[in-house]
Nucleic acid binder design. Structure first.
Lengths: 126, 126
DNA sequence: CGGAATCCAACATGATACTG
DNA sequence: CAGTATCATGTTGGATTCCG
């Protein structure tokens, strides 16, 4: 008979080429999801976004928007008026990404009590 | 008429009580998803996990497993033999969480080329 | 208005050595 | 075997100031 040992399968690869890691690492940061959801309703200007994404600093909003733009999730349009106007909106890919993210949101909403309980139980044990 | 301005809706709330932020922040770290997926096939011992999750240090494996246990995603069982044996497996909630995560994995797989192209285009522009 | 540049504190992670 | 403790380093994000 052949071996019954589990094949030593490596988990979904851990390197920077891993597409999943790329996506999750990006949207897993402190602000990306909030910005994406802030853009679901439509186009927004920089300062409007800053208002809607509560607590974000100008620095992080700029930086995260640049990252999201580079990944292809967000479009940036500059209107060379004075003072300048800049609008952001989701790309088609961005709108598509939001779908699986909503699944996660839904899951998190449904399980928040379970998680709270699990934490409480864990903390009381130790 | 009433105002036609967009209602100034705050995005999904940005604080530590936000269930979504809790979930995404946890699984968005460097190792959590890899560990969860490594446990999908069934129970694994500590060092077996360490082998399967390529590149993880003992320190981060321990720490991330503790976090996942505290959230209620992972079960930890100690067999007080000598030397000690410790087994990890997904909880019911953990197995359930993996489902929406797979949606994200699938999405990421399907769009990896688009993302690569978007990055290339972005980098060439600037 | 929408940034960029700089500085700095906090945190995350890796390497290494030690242990019940 | 499955950790813990300690140290070193890199990364993140906030505050502030300046700019076209």
């Amino acid at each position: 008979m052949t071996t019954t040992a589990k094949p030593e399968r490596r988990v979904y690869y851990n390197n920077d080429d891993c597409p999943v890691r790329n996506v999750v690492a990006q949207i897993g940061d402190k602000w990306s999801m909030l910005i994406l959801f802030a853009l679901v309703d439509g186009t927004e200007r920089f300062n409007a976004l800053k208002s809607r994404v509560e607590g974000i600093s100008q620095r992080m909003l700029t930086q995260t928007l640049r990252d999201l733009e580079r990944e292809g999730y967000v479009n940036r349009t500059v209107y060379p008026e004075v003072p300048v106007k800049v609008e952001y909106c989701l790309t088609e890919m961005g709108r598509d990404l939001v779908k699986p993210l909503y699944q996660l949101v839904t899951w998190a909403d449904q399980h928040q009590d379970d998680i709270r309980q699990a934490r409480k139980a864990y903390d009381e044990r130790s």
